[in-house]
Nucleic acid binder design. Sequence first.
DNA 1: CTGGATCCCACTTGATACTG
DNA 2: CAGTATCAAGTGGGATCCAG
Lengths: 133, 133
Amino acid sequence: MTTGAADETDHQRIAAVLAARGEDACHVREVLDRIGDKWSIAVVHKLADSPRRFSELRRDIPGISQRMLTAALRGLERDGFVDRTVHAAVPPRVDYALTPLGRDLLDSTWPLMNWVLGHTDDIRAARREYDAR
Amino acid sequence: MTTGAADETDHQRIAAVLAARGEDACHVREVLDRIGDKWSIAVVHKLADSPRRFSELRRDIPGISQRMLTAALRGLERDGFVDRTVHAAVPPRVDYALTPLGRDLLDSTWPLMNWVLGHTDDIRAARREYDAR
DNA sequence: CTGGATCCCACTTGATACTG
DNA sequence: CAGTATCAAGTGGGATCCAG
């Protein structure tokens, strides 16, 4: 994809930005601390196409408990990634939708997503080889 | 960066790829399970410029314990992201370097990295507003 | 210098029961 | 339907001591 030289450039450019801010390069942790938990990413991806109701999400994300779904949604809402809309009705109805910021975050996960798609086999092979030793 | 229409396209393209594989969209978790722990990303970024010794990494990553550094390096080695080279010498010397696969992974984290850089303020603002309610 | 082995705590997650 | 409250269980990670 890119040459070693190009990689170097990218990295050093980012390192320079970080240095200028007086921050450490391990800044990615900030995202991971935020969306690196077990379910947040799944929720964000489920909201990619359209807003969803609580029970829709619960149904569409296999294995999630309502407790964890609530926690994930609250966290995403707090960080400004998700909008929560309560419809005054009986039975109650709540819709969750991605904010522009949330959609932006989703965009930025795609390269990583794509990468996994393209390299899962490589990783599995590396693991098999390592474990066989 | 991209329009809403483009986002839709991207997402649906990826969703199609995933569907064709019979896999779930929450596939990003595979990466996060791998490098989403507290230190792996930091290690990968420290190895960006050049190979490093164990003690160099330990010194350059503030707060990491040798136990966690070992664990992170083992995991990265197992997945084929890092190469471990033992130099027969006294005192012992071990170098760690990114493999092509590891460098590729590093590349794919940059968009996310960049995104955090550009939106930390937005997120902090969103949090303050949420917490103030 | 580069780790391996243990102990232990804190936090995350899951299961279950209950409510507006 | 959309949560909250509580409790049990599992796990990640730090501290410490030891070894090649």
